[in-house]
């Protein structure tokens, strides 16, 4: 456990050694802040029966910066160490490979969670100032942040995998973006085309991040997406682990 925490500590700290972290934090705060502002404005103009949480998380303005942060968070994780050769000293210490893989993933996910922490205060402030509930029920808060966490896990694991396949950060970033974008588009198919096959429709909505978000921000917490994201994360991390060992052994 101590070994894992030591590795994790280095991962988390390493985000703040590089200027990219601060750039990401800065733009992410602007994007989510603006997004929240847009959500509030939207509610002012319309009389739709939705909450500010729902309004904030279900727009293009939300999804675009959201997808963009994962390549930035994860691109460094493995690519840089493969390039510098530092895995040789990491893995010849009494450390197990799965601890390295989990620490990298947890570090990326931890940084992602830190990005979201301030946004929580927007809704608290909204509630205090307007006297209205920001979400219809506590469940909508919980649901929104739960889904953000699940999506974050899945997308971080994709980013880690892409980075473990790269030696240049840029390649890792492009690959991550392409993969997440593809996964995300997959869930949009029903919005674009008229899918008539009911089985296919079900399948698509089973994996559609947008539909999950629409449900969870309304407080409808379904166990199927939870299982979907957790198992996909585990699967991607497993592949990540295999790739890591393979590349290390080939070195």
């Amino acid at each position: 456990m101590r070994t894992f925490l030591t590795l994790l500590g280095r991962e988390l700290k390493s985000y703040f050694y590089s200027p990219i972290a601060y750039v990401v934090i800065f733009f992410f705060l602007i994007a989510t802040g603006f997004n929240f502002y847009a959500g509030v404005m939207f509610l002012n103009r319309s009389d739709a029966e939705i909450t500010v949480v729902e309004a904030s998380f279900n727009t293009v303005l939300f999804w675009f910066p959201f997808i963009l942060i994962f390549p930035l968070i994860t691109m460094r994780t493995y690519a840089d160490e493969f390039r510098m050769g530092t895995f040789e000293m990491v893995t010849t210490a009494p450390v197990q490979d799965w601890q390295v893989v989990l620490a990298k993933f947890t570090g990326a996910f931890g940084f992602y969670c830190m990005l979201w922490a301030p946004s929580f205060s927007y809704f608290v402030a909204f509630q205090l100032i307007s006297g209205k509930e920001a979400a219809m029920a506590a469940g909508a808060y919980g649901g929104s942040y739960l889904l953000l966490a699940l999506l974050g896990m899945f997308y971080c694991s994709i980013g880690c995998l892409a980075s473990s396949l790269s030696t240049e950060q840029v390649n890792a970033a492009v690959m991550t973006f392409a993969c997440i974008f593809a996964v995300f588009l997959g869930g949009l198919v029903t919005f674009i085309f008229n899918v008539t096959n009911p089985a296919l429709r079900d399948l698509i909505s089973y994996v559609s991040a947008i539909e999950h978000m629409a449900d969870f921000t309304r407080g409808i917490i379904d166990s199927r997406p939870i299982i979907w994201y957790l198992s996909m994360t585990a699967l991607v991390l497993f592949v990540n682990f295999q790739v890591f060992q393979y590349r290390k052994w080939k070195a």
Binding site: G9, Y17, E88, M89, T92, V95
Partner: peptide, 29 residues
């Protein structure tokens, strides 16, 4: 049981010397 100095001495460039050595000590139990 091993203390290993790899060829070309790969090190984390972004850490300070004492910070790096503390990190390594703790990794090595």
């Amino acid at each position: 049981h091993i203390g290993y100095l790899p060829e070309n001495t790969p090190l984390y460039q972004d850490m300070r010397v004492n910070e790096y050595l503390r990190y390594r000590a703790s990794l090595k139990h």
